[in-house]
Measured scan of single mutants.
Amino acid sequence: TYTWNTKEEAKQAFKELLKEKRVPSNASWEQAMKMIINDPRYSALAKLSEKKQAFNAYKVQTE
């Protein structure tokens, strides 16, 4: 089980997950979700809006 003390740690864990699963920077949210949804870190960020925000930040960083 994973635990995160801060929102920032949770966001980092979520981005690490995207990186580890090699989600391409041109992937849509739907494509990315299919690649990461079974990992416990997918739940790091509770709100869908937070997940999408972190995903978009990840995409910008990896382009």
Rank of each mutant, 00 (worst) to 15 (best):
K15F: 15
T62Q: 12
T3W: 14
V60K: 14
Q31V: 14
Q12H: 08
E16H: 07
R22I: 06
R22C: 12
K51V: 04
Y2F: 13
I37N: 12
A13R: 05
A54M: 07
L18T: 00
V60E: 08
K15H: 15
N38D: 12
E30H: 11
S43E: 14
V60R: 13
K21S: 08
E9P: 01
R41E: 01
F14Y: 02
F14S: 00
E63H: 12
A13T: 05
A44W: 03
A10V: 02
W4S: 08
Q61H: 07
K15D: 15
W4K: 09
K21F: 08
T6L: 04
S28H: 09
L18S: 00
Q53A: 13
Y42T: 01
Y42G: 02
T6P: 02
V60T: 13
N38K: 10
L17D: 00
K51L: 06
N56A: 12
W29N: 00
A27V: 11
Y58K: 01
A54E: 13
M33D: 05
I36E: 00
R41H: 02
N5Y: 13
K47A: 12
A44N: 03
K11T: 15
L17I: 03
L45A: 02
K15V: 14
K34D: 10
R22D: 11
A44D: 02
N26G: 09
R41L: 02
A57W: 12
K59S: 06
T62R: 08
E50W: 05
E16C: 11
N26T: 12
Q12D: 13
K19S: 13
K47C: 14
A46M: 08
R22P: 02
A54I: 09
F55A: 03
L45W: 01
L18H: 00
Q12G: 10
A57V: 10
E50K: 03
N5G: 11
K7F: 09
Q53V: 08
E20P: 00
F14T: 00
M35G: 04
A13P: 01
Y58W: 10
E50I: 03
S25E: 06
Q61W: 13
T1Q: 15
A10R: 14
W4P: 14
L45V: 05
L18P: 00
A27W: 09
N38G: 11
W4M: 04
S49L: 04
K59C: 13
N56E: 11
K47M: 12
T62V: 13
T62C: 14
